[in-house]
């Protein structure tokens, strides 16, 4: 599936829930299921700045694709990360770098987050794109 197709699937998945509390309950379940990052990457250098809760992000380059793992000390944040990983992980760097990740807006999540939290989300996407670019450039060499 392309990033676009994966994004659309997530929007549909969330459209099932009418009530925002149910959408959050779903996000919490996803957060609890998120595969945890390797402990050795949970250090200062893998922390994303600009988030209210702590978020660690790591990226690997496997068969020309970027594979992300991440963790957070807040479970709703983990739920959001798990969505980002589902969409962005295992895709090739140029697709990651050229995609807009508007599915978060399309779910309606960003308007339900406070501005500082929405900024945290922007930082996360930005960091994931930067990893993709860096890995791609390194592989090119």
């Amino acid at each position: 599936m392309t990033i676009k197709e994966k994004s659309e699937a997530i929007v549909e998945e969330f459209a099932i829930f009418d009530d925002w509390m149910d959408k959050y309950a779903h996000l919490i379940e996803l957060g609890k299921e998120l595969p945890i990052i390797d402990e050795k990457y949970k250090d200062e250098s893998h922390l994303i700045s600009g988030c209210q809760s702590r978020v660690w992000l790591h990226a690997d380059y496997v068969n020309d694709n970027v594979v992300y793992t991440a963790d957070s000390d807040a479970v709703i944040t983990k739920g959001i990360i798990s969505l980002l990983i589902r969409v962005m992980s295992d895709a090739n760097p140029s697709e990651i770098y050229s995609s807009d990740f508007t599915f978060i807006d399309d779910i309606g999540l960003s308007t339900h987050l406070s501005p500082t939290r929405a900024n945290g989300l922007v930082s996360m996407v930005k960091q994931m794109k930067l990893y993709a670019k860096a890995l791609y450039l390194r592989a090119e060499k």
Binding site: W20, M21, Y24, S53, D73, A74, V75, I76, T77, L113
Partner: peptide, 19 residues
């Protein structure tokens, strides 16, 4: 539990507190 998670759910329920 992280205060962030609680705060976001309380907001959905109309409760304004600081986290």
């Amino acid at each position: 539990l992280h205060p962030y998670d609680i705060g976001i759910l309380l907001d959905q329920m109309g409760i304004a507190i600081r986290t």
